[in-house]
């Protein structure tokens, strides 16, 4: 639109100085024509979805957020007055909060890195066609059909200190002499829940990265081969730069999900032994179950704030590099 008007006004176009940044009209985008019938149609199609989400998700979420500033305890609802930031102060002065923060950081980083590395490797190896590739993909996809809670239970049984198969296998191979009480010790319990999470999360990375890899044109690899680039160099200078946007987005999504993913820990240890495997969201569930909705909501808002700050910084960091490249 603006391109054509400037031409009509007879202004000099500086096409030589600058490659025209204005895109010609995308054939897919439809020009909004405002007719009452059209608007009613759009509204009618959107209405059921909007209604459900507004009533059962947004309303409780917003009213939950204001509980963070109230004295709201299910055990005593006689006084639900506004208390300002008291719930936040309670959290910040609770030593458990800092244990929980540490755990959450370990949980996110130690789960994410192996998921990314193993998932990347699988995706690279799956790029080549082989006979049972479709079947293989379907098989490694199956952890996704199981709920996080059940995964927790599956691994709780395998990490059982007396009759668990993990201890049995380790002693058969000769790595341990006596059974490890996995879920009873804080350190080993954390290792165990992270192993379960890695088991679950690798597939997601493999699938996302494989889809991105398949979008790389073959010519790029041909060019790299002609230039005599070896396998490792091709990986770092062709493959990774090409799929960087997808990688960055997938990592961001996973950080948010893993942060908000209490299911495995809930099923496996319930946050124990003595709060040592609690992450922010499992702690939040415990507080909710104790009936202190005010405190739980305050914790929820802290989570949102942390994730928001992280996302902004992360997006800034990944975008800057992109700008520098072009």
């Amino acid at each position: 639109m603006s391109l054509s008007t400037s031409k009509q006004a007879g202004r000099p176009t500086r096409r030589g100085a600058r490659p025209a940044p204005l895109k010609t009209t995308d054939p897919r985008s439809r020009k909004p024509v405002f007719t009452i019938r059209r608007s009613l149609g759009i509204a009618g199609f959107m209405a059921p979805a909007a209604l459900f989400v507004a009533v059962f998700i947004y309303y409780p979420m917003i009213s939950g957020s204001q509980m963070a500033f109230r004295n709201w305890n299910l055990n005593d609802l006689t006084d639900t007055s506004w208390v300002g930031f008291k719930n936040f102060q309670t959290i910040f002065s609770d030593p458990v909060f800092y244990t929980v923060l540490d755990n959450t950081l370990i949980w996110v980083v130690a789960s994410l890195v192996p998921q990314l590395v193993i998932g990347f490797a699988i995706a690279l190896w799956l790029r080549r066609r082989f006979r049972f590739r479709g079947l293989y993909q379907a098989l490694i996809f199956f952890p996704w059909a199981i709920s996080g809670f059940l995964i927790g239970i599956l691994f709780r049984w395998m990490f059982n200190s007396e009759f668990g198969v993990v201890n049995d296998l380790l002693s058969k191979v000769g790595l341990i002499d006596e059974p490890i009480p996995w879920l009873a010790e804080p350190k080993t319990a954390m290792v165990a829940v992270i192993i379960a999470n890695v088991w679950y999360g690798v597939t997601f990375f493999a699938i996302m990265i494989l889809a991105a890899l398949q979008s790389i044109p073959d010519e790029l690899y041909e060019a790299a081969e002609l230039d005599g680039a070896g396998k490792v160099r091709t990986l770092f200078q062709v493959t990774i730069p090409y799929i960087r946007a997808t990688l960055a987005l997938t990592v961001l999504l996973r950080v948010i999900w893993i942060f908000n993913f209490p299911d495995i820990i809930f099923g496996m240890t319930g946050g124990g032994p003595s709060n040592e495997t609690h992450i922010v969201t499992t702690w939040m569930i415990t507080i909710t179950q104790q009936g202190d909705y005010g405190k739980a909501s305050a914790l929820g808002l802290i989570v949102v704030a942390l994730l928001l700050v992280f996302s902004v910084f992360y997006l800034m960091a990944t975008r800057e590099k992109k700008g520098a490249r072009s």
Binding site: M67, N260, T288, S297, V303
Partner: peptide
Amino acid sequence: VTQMIPSFIALGPL
């Protein structure tokens, strides 16, 4: 946004 905010914040009011 519904995917980002921990759903537990909505449990009580729900």
